[in-house]
Design a protein around this nucleic acid. Structure first.
Lengths: 125, 125
DNA sequence: CCTTGCCTTCACACTGATGTGAAGGTCCGA
DNA sequence: TCGGACCTTCACATCAGTGTGAAGGCAAGG
């Protein structure tokens, strides 16, 4: 599919799809006339990228981990391509992600705890 | 305490402490000579702000939720200051935070699942 | 053939978070 | 009284993620 259709199907402006390619997150083929040609998988990839960007990851982090995320459990990348250095890097990323999760969960709890307290107060004044 | 000490105790450059004030996240007193005067609580506040920024929240989101986070469960803000609109806004923020958590947790699982698979493969070739 | 709509690259601009430095006021200890 | 360490504001610079528009190539339909 071409960039316009991918944009419509994902809700992401073509400008950003080109930017993600420039950032090495997407790798569409090219038709003879130079048009970008995306496969079906690109839809999921783009949604994945958006989710991670919205969650505060940088394009650099996403570029690193994306190859190990695109496959839904079955089509794992051959592990021979995974040097110990890369594995360590991925583990570091897992740790950073975990730290974010912890921070967010902690504050979500505080926030919703506060809201619950206020509601209880309001119901029984 | 003055800005230099707060910077040393939190590891956050003074430039950023001034920026957070400009963004209405910190509200230090001023001494007669114009120097910023921070209370002890500022240390926790700054760490809170850093954690949330590192977790991908914007200063705007942080500005909104910070008043409801600074207190560690006991010193809740009086609920009469909480209009229904504000409550709704806070709930929306909770939802956004939850969405981030879900996205991050999902991808953390994929990533660490992949790493585990590779390790299993390596241990039993 | 010409219009319409899609595509291409290039480029300028904004915002948010940050780095860095200049120019100057304050305070304390030698 | 001077020097150094601190503080002040102001301002320009950078990076990432976007918006926006110009200038032009390609394709399909009336």
């Amino acid at each position: 599919m071409r960039i316009g259709e991918l944009s419509r199907r994902t809700g992401v402006p073509t400008r950003l799809l080109r930017y993600y390619e420039e950032q090495d997150l997407l790798h569409p083929e090219r038709a003879d006339n130079g048009y970008r040609a995306y496969g079906e998988a690109a839809v999921r990839d783009v949604q994945q990228i958006r989710g991670l960007l919205d969650s505060g990851l940088t394009t650099e982090m996403i570029r690193t981990i994306l190859p190990y995320l695109s496959a839904p459990e079955e089509i794992l990348l051959p592990p021979q391509h995974l040097t110990p250095e890369t594995a360590a890097l991925l583990e570091a990323h897992v740790d950073r992600i975990q730290a974010r999760i912890d921070c967010l969960a902690r504050n979500r709890d505080r926030l919703s705890g506060y809201l619950a307290a206020v509601r209880a107060e309001a119901g029984r004044p």
